Amino acid sequence: MITVVCPVYNEEEFIENVLKFFVEAKPDDKELIIVDGGSTDRTLEIIANWIKNYNNIKLLHNKNKYVPYALNLAIRNSKGDPIIRLDAHTLYEKNYLEKILETFEKTNADIVGGPMRKIGHTDFQLAVAYATTSMFGIGDSKIHRIDYSGESDHVYLGAWRRKLFDEIGYFDEKLVRNQDDEFHYRAKSFGKKIYLSSEIVSYYYPRKTFLGLFKQYFQYGLYKPLVLKKIKSEIKLRHLIPALFTTYLILLPILIILNEFFILPLLLYFLINLIFTLRNRGSFKQKILIFMVYTVIHLAYGLGSILGLSKIFKLSF
C-alpha cells in the first residue's frame, strides 16, 4: 500500500480535483490522508461527502494550521510506503502515482518527484508561470526545468521512502515556508539520493494577484536564511542575489549623491528584465505583466531575505 498526503486550508475550489484524481489513479492499494488547517469554507463538507463512499480517504485536523505540522501529522498516522505529497492547487496526470513508483524502482532513490510545471487561466497567472521558470526569474534551479531527469537537490512536492523519516527526522515545524526545501537539503546532506524525473507530470496554478505573489515570495525569502543556516552546503549564489540587489536599491538615493554612476546597475537590471520579457511569445498585456512580475518576485524575495538574515544575525548573538 502507498500513502498519499495533502494539507488543505479553504480549498473548496480545488479539493474535488484532488479527490477525483486519487480515486481514479492507479494503484488501487492506497490511502489518502487529508489534513485540514481550520477551513471556514465548504472544504470539510466536500471531503466528508467523499469519505462516505471511500473508506481509504481519511481526514485529520491540524490545530497548528501550518504545512509542516500537517505533513508530520499525516506521516505519523499513515501506513503506506512510499509517502507521496499532493497539493490542492495542482493538477496531476492520471499516471502520476505510477510514474513515482516506477522512478523509485528504476533509480533506488530515497526521494523522487517531478519538475514544477506552471500553468494559468489568466494573463497574470501565465505571466507568473513564465517569469518563475526563467533563468532571470529564479536562477538555474533544476526543479523548474521540465525536460530534466536526473539527480537533484529538490523536487516539486516529493515522494519519500518511509524509512527516511526514521533516519533523518521529520519536517521542521519552525518553517512556515521552505520546509520541503530544508527536508530535501537535509536528506542530501545525509547522503540520500534525490531523483527528479520529467515523466512525473503535474501542473501548478500560480497566485492570482500581485499581492498574493508578493506575500508568497516574501515568505520564501524570509525562511530561506534559516534553511541555509541549518544546511550550509546548499548555499548558492541565486539565494543571495535578490537580497544584494534589494539592499542596493534601498541605498541607491545615497549612492547616487556620492556618484551618479551608481545608477548603472539599475539600468542594467531593467535592460536584462526587458530582454527576458521580450522572449515571451504571449500577448502585449502578458509582456507588461511579466516585466512587473520579475521586479515583484525579486524585491519580495530580497526584502524577505534581508529580514530573515537580520533575525538569524540576532539569534547568533
Rank of each mutant, 00 (worst) to 15 (best):
D140P: 05
E105P: 02
K94M: 09
F22I: 06
M116F: 12
E11S: 14
P7C: 05
M116N: 14
T209P: 00
A88M: 06
P7V: 11
A187S: 15
I33K: 00
Y203A: 13
F165A: 05
I84F: 13
G169K: 13
I2F: 01
D147A: 05
A129V: 11
M116D: 07
N95C: 02
V176Q: 00
G282Q: 04
L211Q: 14
D36S: 01
I75C: 02
A70Q: 03
S197Y: 10
Y195D: 10
L307K: 10
K142A: 01
D110N: 06
I275E: 04
G38Y: 13
R76A: 13
V23N: 04
D140C: 06
L244W: 11
L196V: 11
P82Y: 03
E173P: 06
T133M: 04
G191K: 13
F313R: 10
I15H: 09
S233C: 09
P7D: 03
Y217T: 00
L315C: 04
F14S: 05
L266F: 15
P206F: 01
A159G: 11
S198M: 07
H184G: 07
L86R: 01
M116L: 15
D172C: 02
N178I: 03
A109N: 08
K285S: 03
R162A: 14
K163A: 07
L157D: 08
L289Y: 05
K285W: 10
I194F: 01
G80C: 09
R207K: 15
E13C: 06
F218N: 06
I57G: 04
L266G: 10
L71Y: 05
K94P: 13
I250N: 02
I75P: 00
S202K: 12
R238K: 14
D181F: 14
E151F: 03
L303W: 14
L240W: 09
S305M: 12
E93A: 15
L303F: 15
L91I: 08
I75G: 05
T122E: 10
G139Y: 03
F291N: 02
Y220T: 07
N64T: 07
A300L: 09
L289K: 14
S283A: 01
G282S: 03
R85G: 10
L237E: 04
I306T: 11
K229D: 12
P265Y: 11
A70E: 03
K229W: 08
P265Q: 11
K192R: 13
H154K: 06
R76M: 04
L267A: 10
R85I: 07
V23K: 07
N10W: 02
E260M: 13
D87S: 08
D172H: 12
W50L: 08
N95T: 09
D181R: 05
N53H: 10
L164N: 01
V293G: 04
S141F: 09
I290T: 02
K52P: 03
R85Y: 08
V112C: 09
G308T: 09
T40R: 12
H61K: 14
L271P: 00
K174E: 13
T122N: 11
D81H: 07
I75E: 08
G137E: 04
I297A: 11
N108F: 07
I241P: 06
F270D: 06
D181M: 03
Y294T: 09
Y204S: 14
F262R: 01
K174R: 15
R207L: 07
P27H: 11
M135I: 12
L268D: 05
E173S: 10
N56I: 15
F210Y: 14
G308K: 07
K163Y: 15
